[in-house]
Amino acid sequence: MTGLVPAQDVLTTLRREFEAEDDTFLLKLRGAHLEWDRDAFSRLEQAMRAACELYQGRDVMERWIAEGFYEVSHFVRGWTSHPHFPRPEPGEYYDACLERLDDLADWFFRGVHNYIEPHTWSDL
């Protein structure tokens, strides 16, 4: 993925998402309407996946990236697990998304994902 998208674009998108700027998944999720925006989630997930590829095998990374991966992997699950959080999609979709966030955080921090290559990450 990072071969197609410049690394700086990936990092810019990731920073915007992690800082919950306008029109980002986290802002919509935490906002007044408690909206799980599928397109915004996809943008976040794809940026996280690209960052995992970009940082795979590296020993040094910027703190904001590590903090963002950690926070997203914990916050989204906790925030959306409230029984009154609106979930218009089938439950399997949310379960798959939360599992993906866990997988990406695991990949980012360990430097390798848990799947046998060749592995294709399906779109959610």
Rank of each mutant, 00 (worst) to 15 (best):
E71G: 08
R43M: 10
S73Q: 05
T80A: 05
D22Y: 05
L27C: 04
L11V: 02
F109D: 08
A32K: 08
G111I: 09
P83V: 09
D106W: 07
V76N: 01
V76Q: 01
T12N: 07
D102S: 11
G68T: 03
H84W: 11
Y94K: 05
F69P: 00
D9G: 00
E71P: 00
W64L: 07
R30K: 13
Y94A: 06
L34F: 11
V72N: 02
R16M: 04
A105G: 12
S81D: 14
W36I: 02
G57S: 12
R43S: 15
A40C: 11
E71L: 08
W79H: 11
D103K: 06
E67W: 03
H119E: 13
L98W: 12
E19R: 08
D95T: 12
E62A: 13
Y93C: 07
F18G: 00
R110H: 14
L27T: 04
L27E: 14
H84S: 15
D37R: 04
A66F: 06
A20S: 12
H84N: 13
L44A: 06
P118T: 06
R110W: 08
R38C: 06
P86V: 08
G31F: 06
L98G: 06
F69V: 01
E35H: 11
R38M: 15
D9V: 02
M61F: 12
L27D: 12
A7L: 01
P83K: 08
E35L: 13
C52M: 07
E117T: 07
D102N: 12
R16Q: 13
F69K: 00
R49M: 08
F85G: 14
V60P: 00
Y70K: 07
Y94G: 03
D103R: 10
T13D: 05
Y70D: 15
S42P: 00
L34E: 15
R43T: 15
F109I: 10
W107S: 01
N114E: 13
E17Q: 14
L44T: 02
F75V: 04
V72F: 02
M61R: 10
F75Q: 06
R16L: 04
L11I: 01
V112Y: 09
W107L: 03
Y93V: 12
P86C: 07
F25Y: 14
D103S: 11
T12W: 01
E35G: 01
I116D: 13
Y70W: 11
W36N: 02
R87F: 11
Q8V: 07
I65N: 01
E19W: 06
E35M: 09
S81Q: 13
C97S: 14
L44F: 07
A47F: 06
R63G: 01
A51S: 13
E117I: 05
L98D: 14
S42E: 15
E62I: 02
R87C: 15
F108D: 00
L54A: 10
R110P: 02
E71Q: 10
E99M: 10
L98Y: 08
L14C: 02
V60G: 01
F109V: 10
D37K: 04
P88E: 10
L101C: 14
Y94T: 05
L26W: 02
A105Q: 13
A51G: 05
Q8M: 03
W64Q: 11
M61H: 11
T80K: 04
I116F: 09
R63D: 15
Q8D: 15
V112D: 14
H82I: 04
Q56V: 02
F18S: 01
A96L: 07
R100H: 11
I116H: 11
A105D: 14
E92Q: 08
H33C: 06
C52T: 03
T120R: 09
